[in-house]
Write a protein that binds this DNA or RNA. Structure first.
Length: 567
RNA sequence: CGGGAUAUAGCUCAGCUUGGCAGAGCACUAGCAUGGGGUGCUAGGGGUCGCAGGUUCAAUUCCUGUUAUCCCGACCA
């Protein structure tokens, strides 16, 4: 493609709205433009990268015996009502009405559509398993879109759904797609981990998220420093045992702790360690309030709490609610003599000896509190977030944290949708059974941003060869110099003939402008036609390393081919 | 949804405190020079100062409302 014929609006300055590297560079290098919050146009370069990623996804999915189809983005409300999600999905589902006042949704995901399709078309165990996928635009009215393509309201996703007559078959396809996903992200050049994730109320024991390691990631990954264990921090179970100190139990006492509210303040004021404190938090669990206790140096894990109580929603009660329910400000909460609400506690609390907790009275705490003696707990469970330094749940090594961007998710759905929507098949005995399902997503546009996030330097983007919008950037230093212009034009045609993907900067621009734009766009190899054009010699520069070689035009195609292979 | 901030040319931003014809740099157009890392000079084009209302002889500037965008938090099958 000649640069004079396409649209690559590079910017000299970074738009003020862009915060993270990938967002800034994709805008600056002219790959995309924002339309509304979380809504973007892909310009020609952006579109090409997107297509590269899509094609890798297609190859790997097809290789795993998944078949592509395309479902509507515009979906009738009835389907969502059938699964129940019309009422539970919330405002994140974009809803609209047609001219006849019928209700629709813009697809946030496609479980309903695919389940209804397969229900109608597949009736026999002989047609199973079946794995279908699509690459499509999804709509989610995010509360807070941010970071450019990383969290948009309209984005491109590959979603796949598998249907089975047995758990074993689901396991098999899950494993195959897990491998396909690893291949996709490896081929995109990403540094990623597959981590154990939350399966939530959907049940099913296996679900993994594919996380690209990045400081701007919105999820925290807890992984072992020695084994390959990795889990979303929400999920990592605590395996350590808490030893009770052998200290003699002392008499409980109420002490004045004027204006000491936080764990930090109270521990400092009473000169005790955080581990000796019992932190009490009031949660609203569905319609009930529950007092949750963890040790002062620990944090409540709301996902574990939610799973333990089999709740639909779990949120911290507000200060006002707390005051109403326990008639006490949040800084002085404690479990002693509390009968109004259920009390659950993390295992670590059970081992606290002569601890400190709020006295349910402003400015007062209890000291020498002992669980069992001074207050009762309905249930002890694993309720806290894992910490760095904790033993790894798989028994080998200790836990370290990293931030991750979720780019893929594989999930064993089970029969949640097939049962709700009556997607059944007849088994070998002629008996009707609900189909067992799996679902598998890849955030395609998010993957593009994740790569941009990992591959850049101070001069701009540095695309891995596999997904670069073009492989080669051909530059004529001076298009007014006839020798240079002619050689560049000839090389452009020759290299195209050799099936290279090539962007030719044929603009009448200053060399400095061309070089700067070239670095910014970040194609893997740059061919510069300059002073030595008359001798048939050009320069080849590797974007990533900056390494430059002079090459005779007769050897150019061969040299480029082998260089592309090596990067 | 709670808290904070911003909105003036395609981009980055001044001007507003103290009301009086709309500004700069970059980008764009034309010309001349230049031609290996965002070049120089000259001459131009481009804005309903987010929108609506109010105060005023006069509002980009003051007041009220509203919308959009960004940030922090909560949320995220």
């Amino acid at each position: 493609m000649k640069q004079s014929m396409t649209l690559i609006p590079t910017l000299r300055e970074i738009p003020a709205d862009a915060e993270v590297k990938s967002h800034q560079l994709l805008l600056k290098a002219g790959f995309m433009r924002q339309n509304a919050s979380g809504v973007y146009s892909f310009l020609p370069l952006g579109k090409r990268v997107l297509q590269k990623v899509e094609n890798i996804v297609r190859e790997e999915m097809d290789g795993a015996d998944a078949v592509e189809l395309l479902m509507p983005a515009l979906q009738q409300a009835e389907l969502w009502q059938e699964s129940g999600r019309w009422y539970t999905y919330g405002p994140e589902l974009m809803r609209l009405r047609d001219r006849n006042d019928r209700e629709f949704a813009l697809g946030a995901t496609h479980e309903e559509v695919i389940t209804s399709l397969v229900r109608d078309e597949v009736k026999s165990y002989k047609k199973l398993p079946l794995t279908l996928y699509q690459i499509q635009t999804k709509f989610r009215d995010e509360k807070r879109p941010r970071f450019g393509l990383l969290r948009g309201r309209e984005f491109i996703m590959k979603d796949a759904y598998s249907f089975h007559s047995s758990k074993e078959s689901l396991d098999e396809v899950y494993k195959k797609l897990f491998q396909a996903y690893s291949n996709v992200f490896s081929r995109c050049g990403l540094n990623f981990r597959a981590v154990i994730a939350d399966s939530g109320a959907m049940g099913g024991k296996d679900t993994h998220e594919f996380m690209v390691l990045s400081d701007i990631g919105e999820d925290t990954i807890a992984y072992s420093d020695t084994s390959n264990y990795a889990a979303n921090i929400e999920m990592a179970p605590i395996v350590m045992e808490y030893k009770r100190s052998s200290e003699a139990l002392k008499e409980m006492d109420k002490v004045k702790t004027e204006n000491q509210k936080t764990i930090e303040e109270v521990a400092g004021f009473l000169e005790v360690s955080h581990e000796n404190l019992i932190k009490s938090l009031l949660f609203k669990v569905d319609d009930q309030y529950v007092l949750v206790l963890v040790r002062g140096d620990h944090e409540v894990n709301d996902v574990k709490l939610k799973n333990l109580l089999e709740a639909g929603s779990v949120e911290l009660a507000s200060a006002e609610e707390t005051k109403t329910v326990l008639s006490c400000p949040v800084g002085s909460l404690g479990p002693v003599s509390v009968t109004e609400v259920r009390i659950v506690a993390d295992h670590a609390v059970e081992a606290v000896v002569n601890g400190v907790c709020g006295a349910n009275e402003e400015h007062y705490h209890f000291i020498n509190v002992n669980p069992g003696r001074d207050f009762n707990v309905e249930q002890y469970a694993d309720l806290r977030f894992i910490k760095e330094g904790d033993p790894s749940p798989d028994g080998s090594g200790t836990i370290v944290f990293a931030k991750g961007i979720e780019v893929g998710h594989v999930f064993k759905l089970g029969t949640r949708y097939s049962e709700a929507m009556n997607a059944t098949y007849l088994d070998e005995n002629g008996k009707s059974q609900p189909m067992i399902m799996g679902c598998y997503g890849i955030g395609v546009s998010r993957t593009v941003a994740a790569v941009a996030e990992q591959y850049n330097d101070e001069n701009g983007l540095v695309w891995p060869a596999n997904i670069a919008p073009y492989q080669l950037h051909l530059i004529a230093v001076n298009m007014k110099d006839e020798t240079q212009a002619q050689l560049a034009n000839e090389l452009y045609k020759e290299l195209q003939g050799e099936r290279f993907e090539i962007l030719f900067d044929d603009r009448q621009e200053r060399p400095g402008v061309k070089f700067a734009d070239s670095d910014l766009i970040g194609l893997p190899l740059r061919i510069t036609v300059g002073k030595k054009a008359s001798e048939g010699i050009v320069e080849v520069k590797v974007r990533k390393t900056g390494e430059v070689t002079e090459v005779n035009r007769s050897e150019l195609a061969g040299t480029l081919a082998s260089m592309l292979k090596s990067i």
